[in-house]
Design a protein around this nucleic acid. Structure first.
Length: 191
DNA sequence: GGTATGATTGACT
DNA sequence: GTCAATCATACCA
């Protein structure tokens, strides 16, 4: 399980370090392959305009979940970062399914592993995350976060997806070349 | 009270 | 490539 201090850092640092971490909800989940950082000074962040009823969890203690409804249809899961009251978080966008594949397939009505959790809305659907999880600590049930087993993963960086402000900030992180991303990162030029 | 806008996805041309 | 689904929130009257 990750220590509390892991989350009490800049969202950008946490976002990078969450790639390769295993996320489980009720024992169902997999290895995170794509994340995005959002903080209080970021025009694209829900916390930019200050605390509201919706984003209250973002201003709570780090290491907890911030869940919101996206486009009226999907849930999106974030991990609160930094200091309490700081309003920063990391959006969990995609993971490689490793635990409970059958359950996820049934929830999503799909058989293709690559499509089960390759997007923030898909990830919450597969793991059955809803507003009921908003504000819950991620270091105890139903959540579990397990440290990554390898160091020196090939982590790619790029602009975030689906936003209209601060579109160039390179605060999206992911496992380079993974087939489980919501979108691929540009591959390095090959000789 | 009304209305515009998404940290998205899936279906369709 | 385009576009609708669907609703909480933010903002304005």
């Amino acid at each position: 399980m990750l220590p509390p201090a892991f989350f009490a850092r800049d969202a950008v640092a946490v976002a990078r370090d969450l790639v390769g971490v295993t996320l489980l909800v009720e024992g169902i989940g997999g290895v995170l392959v794509e994340t995005e950082a959002y903080d209080r000074t970021d025009p694209a962040s829900h916390s930019f305009a200050g605390r509201t009823a919706r984003n209250a969890a973002m201003f709570g203690p780090p290491g907890r979940a911030y869940v919101y409804r996206s486009y009226g249809i999907h849930w999106c899961l974030n991990v609160v970062c930094g200091q309490e009251g700081g309003g920063s978080a990391v959006l969990l966008r995609a993971l490689r399914p490793t635990h409970g594949l059958d359950v996820m397939r049934e929830r999503r009505g799909l058989s293709d592993e690559r499509a089960l959790c390759s997007g923030p809305g898909r990830l919450t659907a597969a793991l059955a995350v809803t507003i009921a999880h908003d504000g819950l600590p991620l270091d105890r049930p139903p959540f579990a976060l397990l440290p990554r087993e390898e160091d020196a993963l090939p982590i790619a960086t790029g602009p975030r997806i689906g936003i209209s402000k601060a579109v160039e900030a390179p605060w999206r992180f992911g496992l380079a070349g993974s087939p489980f991303l919501s979108r691929r990162f540009p591959e390095p030029a090959r000789a």
